[in-house]
Computed example of a mutant assay.
Amino acid sequence: MNTILPILVVDNNYIAKEVAILAGIAIALELIILLLVVFLVIFKNKKGWWIINRKSHMTVLGSSEKRMLSSLLSEAIIKLSEEKTGALITIERSMPLNQYVDLGIKIDSEVSPQLLQSIFYKESPLHDGAVIIRLGRIECASTYFPLTNKKISSQYGSRHRAALGISELTDSVSIVVSETTGAVSIARDGKFLQVENLNNLVRTLFDELASSKEMANQLQ
């Protein structure tokens, strides 16, 4: 007795189509996984900035360079304080201040106490706004930051509000000189540090800019 076996008809076009679909799904899954990894890396950065593997500007400067920068800034700030000349100097750290640099007047000069005094001189066209220090150089002058929404003492003016505002948005360090009293304040992480003794200003600034390792070496 002869047995009739069913004949399996293979549609090559159908198989090719299914393989293509599966390959497309695999590629899509790989892309999704890649995007998730990128997403996690981005938001691992401090305060959610869209930066991947960016080195801190302050870590580019060595300990001796930070100490020199602190010394030059202190010399300028003490003079501005004595003359009660209002000033706002912001030091960029790991979070770039590009949008604020673009708003200001490009300087790109070495830090000089005399130049800083000239910029903030009351008759200077650049005295309003802030100076941004980047990589140990004066990057720009006469730029403006968003003001803080916090309720702060009435003794603080717009410079103080701007310094606090930028410290809330970035990890920058800002030094403010009051044009009313000559008092010096440092804004960082949304808080003010009042500088009571200007003789210790160099050390205070260095401590604000230095890494924990550099500070430990200073104490040894």
Rank of each mutant, 00 (worst) to 15 (best):
I4K: 08
P6A: 03
N12F: 11
Y14F: 11
A16C: 09
V19N: 15
E30F: 15
I32F: 14
I33W: 15
I33K: 15
I33P: 10
L34S: 10
L36M: 11
V37P: 03
V38W: 06
L40E: 05
K47T: 05
I51G: 09
V60M: 12
L61Y: 08
R67Q: 14
M68G: 02
K79I: 02
K79V: 01
L88C: 08
R93S: 13
V101I: 14
V101A: 12
D102L: 13
I105E: 12
I107V: 14
D108S: 12
E110W: 13
I119D: 08
F120T: 03
Y121L: 07
K122H: 01
P125V: 06
L126H: 08
L126K: 07
H127T: 12
V131K: 07
V131T: 11
I133D: 09
R134L: 15
L135A: 13
I138E: 04
E139D: 05
A141I: 07
T143F: 07
F145D: 03
P146N: 08
P146M: 01
L147M: 13
N149L: 11
Q155S: 11
S158F: 03
H160K: 01
A163N: 05
S174E: 12
V177Y: 05
S178A: 02
A183S: 12
V184E: 00
I186W: 11
Q194R: 07
N200T: 03
N200V: 00
R203I: 00
R203C: 00
D207F: 04
E208W: 02
S211H: 00
K213S: 07
E214P: 14
E214G: 10
N217A: 10
N217I: 11
N217L: 14
